[in-house]
Design a protein around this nucleic acid. Structure first.
Ligand SMILES: [Mn+2]
Ligand SMILES: [Mn+2]
Ligand SMILES: [Zn+2]
Ligand SMILES: [Zn+2]
Lengths: 138, 138
DNA sequence: AAACCTATTGAAAATAATTTTCATATATCA
DNA sequence: TGATATATGAAAATTATTTTCAATAGGTTT
């Protein structure tokens, strides 16, 4: 959180109660929350918080690399905090459940910067699709 | 294409010129096209084609596993054909260019069905983020 | 080939998510 | 504290996608 304060100062941004509330909501919430969910959670701490400000703050936090977007196929973008622990997601194609899975299947990528096709690879995103325990039959 | 004809008949769907045009547009187009782009391309063959029908056909083709969705972070969903060759994408974080990269970095996944956390893993999606040749400096 | 039935289509209207506008409020710094 | 530029909330605007509905056209049966 102090780290955020630094980030903001460097960029000439201000530290507001709204930004703190949104950040806290993201960190205390589930693995992937919709904007609406983040808004609801953040209003716990700051009931007057507007939805527009949540959108704006998410954009800011995205640039500051505090959150990342994830799209699960329904029409809305979701967000989750960028934590120390790199992880991926198991997504159930039947019920839509999302579960984080620790660790990385792409061993050559951990830490290192790779080059391929002239691309300098800086990060990656992996989603695993299937059926969760509850949705398996036969 | 004949395969599609079978698929449709089995499900009681009809083979229309609209559906043929959309499918052709997807197969002849780039790796990831927006709905608008698919519409434009398909109108080459069928100028009267409506955008609504493109949306409906994409939904149908998704269920028939002929196309898959991909979300690149701008507000619109993109589509690409599901081809024989499994591949992933290099996405430039600066200019937004998308380039397919053949082959799979997840060796244990090719073909096999894996189980993890009780999940039965049936497929996956991997996107690699970085900077393309043109956008690298310093 | 004509009739029949139902799935499909296109245009327009409706929705839903996200962005923009603008007047007001407030964080930061001298 | 006061000056000032950034940030905020509400409402309006925009954009992507879905729904509605009357008209059209596959596919099948006579
Ligand atoms: Mn997660
Ligand atoms: Mn592709
Ligand atoms: Zn990984
Ligand atoms: Zn792969």
């Amino acid at each position: 959180m102090d780290e955020l304060r630094q980030e903001l100062k460097i960029r000439g941004y201000r530290l507001t109660s709204q930004r703190e509330a949104v950040l806290r909501a993201i960190y205390e919430g589930a693995c992937t929350q919709s904007v609406e969910e983040i808004h609801e959670r953040a209003k716990q701490w700051l009931p007057s918080l507007g939805l527009t400000t949540v959108y704006r703050t998410l954009e800011l936090l995205k640039h500051a690399r505090k959150v990342q977007e994830i799209y699960l196929g329904d029409g809305k973008v979701r967000y989750e905090p960028i934590l120390e622990t790199h992880h991926h997601h198991l997504i159930c194609q039947v019920c839509g459940k999302v579960e984080p899975v620790e660790g990385c299947f792409l061993s050559p990528f951990e830490g290192a910067t790779l080059v391929r096709n002239g691309f300098q690879i800086l990060g990656h995103r992996l989603e695993l699709y299937g059926r969760c325990r509850d949705c398996q039959e036969g």
